[in-house]
Design a protein around this nucleic acid. Structure first.
Lengths: 124, 124
DNA sequence: CTCCATGCTGGACAACGTCTAAAGCAGTCA
DNA sequence: TGACTGCTTTAGACGTTGTCCAGCATGGAG
């Protein structure tokens, strides 16, 4: 546990939104000016490997990091502004995939992304 | 309808796999050597707008283009080799999102991505 | 034939992420 | 204490993917 890793962890812990790697870097620099981009990427990668943080890619521009890794949830994305909310649908999509549709895969995870327009963008 | 657009459409029609933009470009060049990358991107973008082709992003490296746009389906991705299969789960995930979880969004679409390990990678 | 609109081309550019060589910074062991 | 060892960080180069733009080609209208 180095100063750099602590700062990255603090940034993610403090902000309960879905930050991009660059946003994490920007906030980390505010706390520790000499931290480098590579370190932020490395640390984020380690946190993902450890299961402390989830990688989410709702658009294909930049990965986002979700500190809420311990409670399973899915995402609702505004198609216009890109805002992301965590949502908790009922039902279990894993159970909705019959064996005949698994093609021999060992299926371990499902990711559900709802897309729509948020109230802000709808008003504009 | 120009020669370039025809070639892009042919590539997508001929290959029932999920190609990246660069793969589409490579195959298009084989049929029409002077086609440029920008044209492929433009044409793919138009096809997506027209609803003829779906944009899929299962990894965050490159968008993939799915010619099977007219039948709703979801995707099963191998976490190791990246292979993609179309799947048709039972149930309707849209109905699984209660109003209290919509936060005022107008939800129009759901994308479900199953992740696992394909038989090939499991054997290796 | 000339003009005009449209589309194509090639290359520059931008965003995002990864890699590498070198330096820093503990601990360990004599 | 001083050298050794291994891990981390740094800065920047690099690669990939995608977008933009200025100029050229093409084909139809008048």
């Amino acid at each position: 546990m180095t100063a750099q890793r602590r700062v990255v962890a603090e940034v993610l812990d403090g902000e309960h939104v879905h930050l991009t790697a660059d946003e994490v870097h920007a906030r980390a620099v505010a706390k520790l000016p000499e931290i480098s981009r590579a370190t932020v990427y490395n640390t984020l990668g380690e946190l993902v490997t450890l299961g402390e943080v989830l990688e989410v890619s709702t658009d294909q521009r930049a990965k986002r990091y979700d500190p809420n890794a311990h409670q399973p949830h899915h995402h609702l994305v505004c198609a216009q502004c890109g805002a992301i909310r965590d949502v908790h649908p009922t039902g279990n999509p894993l159970a909705d995939l019959p064996d005949t549709e698994r093609f021999g895969f060992t299926v371990s995870d499902v990711e559900v992304t709802y897309r729509g327009v948020c109230p802000n963008c709808a008003a504009a």
